[in-house]
Simulated scan of single mutants.
Amino acid sequence: MTTCVITSHGGDFFGNDRHLTKLLTGLADYARGCLPADEREPLVKLLAAQQQTEVGTEQTIPAADAGQFAAQLRRIARHRYLRSTKLAEAATLLANAADRAAADGQPWTWRTEAA
């Protein structure tokens, strides 16, 4: 079964973005290589955990954390060793959504669904 994550504060008509969990796991691998060791763990855990999360599970990230994740995701998207345009686009979309959540002072939510 293929699963995806629906994030709030996204760019579609309903204010959501949809990302395959497989893509997020790949993004977690790049985060391990692109970000300093003392900064990356919370983001890596968030991205990698989606592969094992049950369908229907919702997770909320506080606005302050969303702002930090946005900066880290932008660094990953712009990293010179990130060769995949799909991963760079996913990182940028996630960063934009995290920025919007932080700017609104609202929690950023992630919901796992079957694709």
Rank of each mutant, 00 (worst) to 15 (best):
T3M: 11
S8Q: 03
H9S: 09
H9G: 01
H9L: 05
G10Y: 00
G10M: 01
G11H: 07
G11T: 03
F13A: 15
F13P: 04
F13L: 15
G15F: 06
G15S: 09
H19E: 06
L20F: 15
L20G: 10
T21N: 05
L24R: 00
G26R: 05
A28F: 07
A28G: 05
D29H: 10
R32Q: 14
G33R: 08
G33I: 11
C34L: 08
C34I: 14
L35E: 02
L35W: 05
L35M: 06
L35H: 01
D38Y: 06
R40Q: 11
E41A: 12
E41T: 10
E41K: 13
L43M: 07
L43Q: 01
K45V: 14
K45Q: 14
L47P: 01
A48V: 04
A49D: 12
A49K: 03
Q52G: 07
Q52S: 14
Q52H: 08
Q52C: 12
T53L: 11
V55G: 09
G56D: 02
Q59K: 12
T60S: 14
A64M: 13
A64Q: 15
D65C: 11
A70F: 01
A70L: 01
Q72P: 02
R74K: 05
R75V: 08
R78E: 14
H79K: 07
L82C: 12
L82V: 12
R83T: 15
S84I: 08
L87W: 06
L87V: 00
A90W: 03
A90N: 02
L93W: 05
A98C: 11
A98P: 03
R100G: 00
R100A: 02
A103Q: 10
D104K: 15
W108E: 00
W108A: 05
T109H: 05
W110G: 03
R111E: 11
R111V: 11
T112C: 08
T112Y: 05
E113C: 06
E113S: 03
A114Y: 14
A114K: 13
A114V: 14
A115Y: 14
A115M: 09
A115R: 10
